[in-house]
Nucleic acid binder design. Structure first.
Length: 285
DNA sequence: AGCTACTCCTGGTAGC
DNA sequence: TGCTACCAGGAGTAGC
């Protein structure tokens, strides 16, 4: 699933191909991808606009659109499970699951391909209302041990769903939460307010390290879905310590990795490296 | 506040 | 071989 490292990789690769390009035409093959706007309205808003910037915020790719030098709106792209962005030559073979196509003024097309149709390719006049509500970026300044210690103390939720919550912390998904919790040696069911200061510090370091390494390897590609816009798979999946490794030995201690379900999500951890905190699972006394 | 369940989707695969 | 049933899951929502 595309998470922060995959989305960052996509943004970096499409940016130089889109900056300064003007969108000449739009074709929509699956209207729901537009997030509620009609094909006609979407086409009207986007046609003739020029791409002024391509950035990533959380798991969104955000493109500023301008007309006559003024920013008039944004394309907000979310890959969800299986979304991919391609910039291909016009007339080149089109992927069967292409949902939205924007023809550009340089003979290329921006194509949004998405097998499972969960992804979104939306136009918004403003994005502040959406993006400002999200939690901090894990690789930027607002995310540090001091912040996390304070934030965890206020929450009674368990770590796994809390770290998946984009309003708490932006960008993590199922893979990198499991990997980060293993790296920090924290059990996924640990209540947030019971995480020690030392463990919170370890978690900050773990998240930053894992995301940086994953970006360096251009993300993870363990199935046929995620590819970089160059068509290349990422390679971080070879570094997985726990994700998708239920029943296999832990690479740290050789104990068998457990797979449980937490909040409808497959959750992988090492019972020895990530022991349960003392007081739960036992009868209160 | 925070939990569960449900929805959106389709390709892959297990089981027969 | 061909069929059915089930699974994966990010995010939004409803209900408790």
């Amino acid at each position: 699933m595309p998470e922060l490292p995959e989305v960052e990789t996509v943004a970096r690769l499409v940016r130089p191909r889109l900056l300064g390009r003007t969108i000449r035409g739009v074709r929509v093959n699956w209207e729901r991808t537009l997030g509620g706007r009609s094909r006609a309205a979407f086409g009207r808003l986007v046609r003739g606009a020029r791409v002024a910037s391509v950035e990533r915020r959380a798991k969104y790719i955000v493109m500023e659109l301008e007309r006559a030098g003024d920013v008039v709106g944004f394309l907000l792209v979310h890959l969800r499970m299986t979304g991919r962005l391609h910039v291909d030559e016009q007339g080149s073979e089109r992927h069967a699951h292409t949902r939205v196509t924007c023809t550009l003024d340089d003979g290329h097309e921006l194509r949004f391909v998405d097998v499972r149709k969960f992804g979104r390719f939306e136009y918004h006049h403003e994005v502040g209302g959406i993006l400002d509500r999200l939690g901090p970026e894990p690789l930027e300044q607002g995310f540090d041990a001091e912040w996390l210690i304070g934030a965890l103390a206020k929450k009674k939720r368990v770590l796994k769903p809390l770290l998946l919550d984009q309003f708490f912390l932006a960008g993590l998904g199922n893979i990198y939460v499991d990997e980060s919790l293993h790296e920090a040696r924290l059990h996924p069911l640990t209540p947030a307010h019971r995480v020690s200061r030392a463990k919170a510090r370890a978690l900050v370091q773990a998240i930053r390290k894992i995301l940086r390494e994953a970006i360096e390897r251009e993300g993870s590609s363990f199935d046929t879905f995620y590819r970089t816009p160059e068509g290349q798979p990422g390679s971080y999946q070879h570094q997985f310590q726990v994700y998708g490794r239920g029943g296999q030995p832990c690479r740290t201690c050789s104990r068998t990795i457990s797979r449980i379900v937490v909040g409808q999500r497959g959750t992988h951890f090492c019972p020895r490296c990530q022991p349960k905190p003392r007081t739960f699972g036992q009868a209160p006394r």
